[in-house]
Nucleic acid binder design. Structure first.
Lengths: 207, 207, 207, 207
DNA sequence: TATGAATGAGCTTTCATTCAT
DNA sequence: GATGAATGAAAGCTCATTCAT
């Protein structure tokens, strides 16, 4: 089953609608500031976005941005804190796992990343990761969680310990790398990678 | 044969030495400016690096930077133009290919990316790709070339057309993704991926 | 008799305790605002103290400061108005005067300045005097009163009109200058002046 | 006898003329910036003076102020460093000293403070002393030097060890206090103190 | 009386870029 | 080519003050 809310394939617009169900400039001032920052940071990058433009897009006076976020960097930090959630435990995963169905397990993971974040927030997560510590930490945890889940899915789906641990580890890391960067690489190079095909490939590699 | 010059594993220092065989502040002014910019752009990002700091690190007066590079962006463009070379044709590759040895072929590709660039330049290539067109184009060509080579290596090593074309394509793209992003992901998350293990995994997936 | 309350030698803490007999953050909001302002103005100066910090230290919301004091300058004015009292008439002074004891009279004046103000308020009085008219006026009156008293003490203690009027005037002004600035100069340069020694010096000069 | 150049009585205008012999807006940009800052800091205080007004009065663009003085405080520091000189040794003083003529010695000290600074710089020295360390240090050294000289003058003029050391110390400190603060107190309270009268008073006290 | 979000002018500072020498 | 003073637009940020509640 595909749930669109957290599919990485859904559009920014769709995310907005499904999460807030309102017009873009709705909500209180603080929310509108974060909305604006999210859009601008995703579009042009943190450094290249003046706070004045955030205020302008949010429809609030410049000073109000600093009322809520004393320093510009606090906007980014709050954005990451409040709008990216790495889901680190999910009991249902085991329930859904079907022994032997490694492809299905990975495919499900690809469709339902343990990340609650808009497409815009994902771009911010990657783009600003190497400049800002708090962003990097979040990304780091996401990466670890995806690897953990991929490993779990593969272990469950491939009982009997076929394949050594090292190969399983490489498989999990590879799948995480592809998932994390497919959006970026597609955006940058226009080359699309189908996670399902990779899932099948990896599953096949481990039999 | 392993050539260390373009190995992704070599250090920034080693690159510097092997390429220039000089002290860091050697060379003419233009070269020193590019050296400084390379280091600073890689470290803090293009936007966050003032031209004055480039001049300072290069040991040249501020005005000289603009003598060689009329606009700041020209420093980045020149850097990418002159210090990242995507090697798009290499006759020897076929010569080295051993039919049946897919792992060896991919492993060789990992060690010898079709990219002549310092580690610093690689970071710049990824970091600034979504902001600056010229950088993005270079990255795009690099990605395409790696996929092309990975596909070629796999086709050659796995004769007989075993495995369908789609799976082969997924394998090539996966390998390219891992190669391209392993440095970034390691830098960001601390998680290291061994290209050889991935090569073996993929080769095994295609038999 | 020595009364410690207005001795220039008493500490800020002692003043606080003796005057209010309460915890620092006691009292109604208006009082706490003035307390906070007194401390901050004395420490960093009027201009360098934001009203927000006054409110914060006072433990009241920012808006309340402006409820009691419509403009920031009104805090300073109220402080000077309410917390510096230049005592311009004191009948007992004559009673205590002992003809012939000029040193004792001056010494008593030094210990009991005709000023009811905390050490913090004294600093404010000097520091802000040349910027704010109301402060300057208060300081001016204090200076005049000290001179008047010193002159009176010397006249009374040195009967017979020995010494001409000009010298007596210079003596009074000198004593006032030393008294008024000894705190400042000690604070600024670390050099301490003993008012008693100066009293003796001056008395001796006039025989 | 040396007169007007360093007399505390000379006007700001006269100082300007005698020191530079030019129009106010002469000199290079850096000098004009310091000129403007000197005038404005003396008039309204450091905190209350925006750098933009300094630039405006100096007739230079705002950015140039920060070209020469990276932070606003550096303008004040440079001003104190370059435009207040505490003269800590002067051989002639002994030559001029006439044993027995204590009044003359003190009077000469009053007229020729061991301070090379315009009246404006003197005000800055006092006004900003308790906020800025570098200013306070300069003032502290000036105070110490005046005391040293006053003590020296009195010792020389009053041979024979008449009067104990403590009284002599008090006398020196008193004279220094009056000299240092007469300008301030005059400015603030309008009350003028004649240093000569104080000199005579003190000399008389020590016979 | 009490509150804190809202406001915008103005602050210090940064910086790419120009240009006379 | 080489230099660093000069320039001004724009950045991040501060802050007194207002005002609806």
């Amino acid at each position: 089953m595909v749930r669109s809310v957290d599919s990485p394939l859904q559009t920014a617009k769709a995310w907005s609608r499904s999460r807030r169900g309102k017009q873009p400039s709705d909500g209180d001032a603080r929310t509108r500031i974060l909305d604006a920052a999210e859009e601008l940071f995703a579009g042009g990058g943190y450094e290249a976005t003046p706070t004045a433009r955030i205020a302008e897009l949010a429809g609030v006076p410049k000073g109000l941005v600093f009322h809520y976020f004393p320093r510009k960097i606090d906007v980014l930090i709050s954005l990451v804190d409040e709008r990216t959630v790495v889901v680190e435990e999910e009991v249902e995963e085991e329930a859904e796992a079907v022994p032997g169905d490694a492809v299905g397990a990975l495919s499900r993971l690809a469709r339902r990343l343990p990340l609650r974040a808009s497409p815009a927030m994902r771009r911010i997560l990657f783009r600003e990761a190497d400049t800002h510590l708090s962003v990097r930490e979040r990304l780091s945890r996401l990466n670890a969680e995806i690897i953990r889940r991929a490993r779990f899915a593969l272990e469950l789906a491939l009982p009997g310990g076929r394949g050594d641990a090292a190969r399983l580890e490489a498989a999990a890391a590879t799948f995480a790398a592809v998932l994390l960067y497919q959006e970026s690489i597609c955006l940058l190079t226009g080359h699309h990678i189908d996670p399902d095909a990779v899932a099948e490939l990896i599953a096949h590699a481990l039999h």
